[in-house]
Simulated assay, not measured.
Amino acid sequence: MASKRIVKCPNCGVFNTNREYCKNCNTLISHQKKRELKKQAVEQQEIEKVIYEKENPNLAERLKNHSNIFYRIFGWILYSVITIVSLIGAGLAWLIAMVAAG
């Protein structure tokens, strides 16, 4: 036996039985459908974010792939410096956490 679902439209106040959209004003009233649409929107935003990051690399990545050899060398040096500074910062954070933990 299917359950009977009665939902009041938040837009016009009409009670609807077993419907996803209001029969009076065609407003979306199904919570399941709203969740699905929200999930699709979040997935689309994530896809757009990845595409943007792929199409717009940072300065070091652009310099590493430059046609001029001097810019390419500078790009690799910049990339190496950023990596070394990040490793030093991670090491210091780990050391501080270990000292604080006792």
Rank of each mutant, 00 (worst) to 15 (best):
K38G: 08
F74A: 13
A97V: 08
E48R: 14
R5T: 00
N11Y: 00
E53I: 06
I96P: 03
E48I: 10
F15L: 08
E43K: 10
C25V: 02
S30T: 01
L63T: 03
G91D: 03
I73R: 14
V7Q: 01
L78G: 06
I88K: 01
T83L: 13
N56Y: 12
N16P: 02
E20N: 10
L63F: 15
E43Q: 14
N16M: 01
N24L: 08
E53A: 15
G91K: 02
C25M: 04
R72I: 04
F15I: 01
N18E: 04
S80I: 06
Y71F: 14
A93V: 00
K64A: 04
R72F: 07
V42S: 08
L95T: 11
R5P: 00
N56L: 08
H31P: 08
K23L: 12
S3T: 03
I82Y: 06
M1P: 08
A97M: 01
E53T: 11
S86C: 08
S30Y: 09
A90L: 04
I82A: 05
N18H: 10
T83W: 12
A101M: 03
K8E: 08
R35C: 08
W76Q: 10
S67I: 07
G89A: 10
E61P: 06
K39H: 13
V99I: 15
W94I: 06
G102W: 01
K38H: 11
R5L: 00
K54N: 07
L37H: 03
K4F: 05
S80M: 02
I6C: 00
Y79P: 05
F15P: 04
E53M: 15
L59W: 09
Y21R: 12
S67A: 14
I6F: 09
A41V: 04
E61R: 11
N16V: 03
I88Q: 06
E61G: 07
C12Q: 01
L92D: 05
I73N: 09
L87M: 10
E48A: 15
E48C: 10
H66K: 09
S80C: 03
M1W: 02
K39F: 11
L37G: 04
F70E: 08
S86W: 05
K33A: 00
L59K: 15
E36H: 07
W94F: 07
V7T: 00
I77W: 12
N26L: 11
V85Q: 14
R72K: 15
I47P: 07
M98L: 13
K39M: 13
H66Q: 01
L63M: 15
I51L: 12
I77A: 13
V99P: 13
N16L: 05
S80W: 10
V85A: 10
E20Y: 03
Y79S: 11
H66M: 06
L37N: 01
I73D: 09
K23M: 00
T83M: 11
F74G: 00
